[in-house]
């Protein structure tokens, strides 16, 4: 060993620190241990209720399993069956139809309302409160209300149609109107949350930009086009990703209003998975559908990230 005793002891210490990592008695090691102690519940929880299930979904999808019998290994058969299952293909299509039917109008309406609420006017807070109310009504309750509103006898839509001379409008019983019916109630309920997110995004844009633009003689439309919208891009990305995931998850309104029908017109993927898993007890088949579901959302998220990052760079 070289060096003075002090240097030696320092070297010794750092050697021990490195070797013993989180086991030493230094402040650093103590803090590491402590961090782990605080994080331990997270490791256990997310491991048990997220990570493990993710693997389990894939694993179970390789079997034929009716929950009460013994699982039978099938390999990828469940997947090849899925891709030839008309009901499944239909579910994917219906999910896309529903999701984009809901989220695209929501983006525009929510942004429009946010631009209005970003100004000051008399009664702003009161209006904001009222406009937000649908978001705090339980989705189950919301669906039940619309069950009444879509009722062919006394529901507001059928009554209005009769007033216009159209008789026999049955929103939920006709395959061509059942999906629009689901989409309308979902837009109505979903818009306020994204409106509030857009408002927060608008608030975060510094006023200096607008002041500078005004000095340069920019009008309101130019401000919107060249300041507001570009700076809102990260918020857009967030809203797009989250709203699409939320829309693909939809289950409650279909369960209450149509049970996936008429025919399969509103049988979204969640409904398909629920019915196969818990009504027909096809655990393996439903798991395979879950894996595809996950992959679809992953692909959509990647596309969105690419799309918006690409725009940011150009």
């Amino acid at each position: 060993m070289f060096g003075t005793p002090q240097e030696q002891s320092l070297r010794h210490q750092s050697f021990h620190q490195r070797r013993r990592g989180i086991l030493g008695n230094t402040l650093e090691a103590r803090k590491k241990r402590l961090g782990l102690v605080f994080a331990l519940p997270a490791f256990l929880f997310f491991g048990a209720f997220y990570l493990y299930p993710l693997f389990q979904t894939f694993y179970v999808s390789l079997f034929s399993w009716g929950l009460l019998d013994d699982p039978k290994f099938l390999g990828m058969t469940n997947y090849s069956r899925l891709f030839t299952d008309k009901e499944f293909i239909n579910s994917v299509w219906v999910s896309f139809l529903y999701s984009f039917g809901v989220v695209i109008p929501i983006w525009f309406i929510a942004l429009g309302l946010a631009l209005i609420f970003n100004r000051t006017f008399p009664g702003r807070q009161a209006y904001l409160t009222v406009y937000y109310i649908p978001a705090v009504i339980s989705l189950t309750v919301w669906s039940l209300i619309w069950l009444l509103m879509y009722n062919p006898t006394f529901g507001i839509f059928s009554v209005a149609a009769r007033a216009l001379g159209i008789t026999g409008l049955r929103m939920l019983d006709d395959p061509s109107t059942a999906m629009p019916a689901m989409i309308i109630l979902s837009i109505w309920k979903g818009t306020p949350v994204y409106m509030v997110i857009f408002i927060a995004g608008l608030r975060a844009i510094p006023n200096d930009y607008y002041e500078a633009a005004q000095i340069d003689g920019a009008n309101a439309a130019q401000c919107l086009l060249y300041i507001t919208l570009p700076l809102l891009r990260p918020v857009f990305l967030y809203v797009m990703v989250i709203s699409i995931i939320e829309a693909f998850k939809v289950f409650t309104p279909m369960y209450i209003l149509t049970n996936g029908g008429p025919g399969s017109a509103t049988r979204v993927l969640s409904m398909f998975i629920f019915q196969n898993g818990f009504q027909y007890l096809k655990m393996g088949y439903a798991s395979a559908a879950s894996v595809i579901f996950l992959l679809i959302l992953l692909a959509l998220a990647i596309i969105q990230f690419r799309l918006l990052r690409f725009q940011q760079n150009d």
Binding site: P53, L54, Q56, V241, I245, F251, S290, L294, L297, L298
Partner: peptide, 10 residues
């Protein structure tokens, strides 16, 4: 990003 439905069964 993981929708709840996707891990419902496991």
């Amino acid at each position: 990003m993981v929708p709840f439905t996707a891990i419902l069964i496991p």
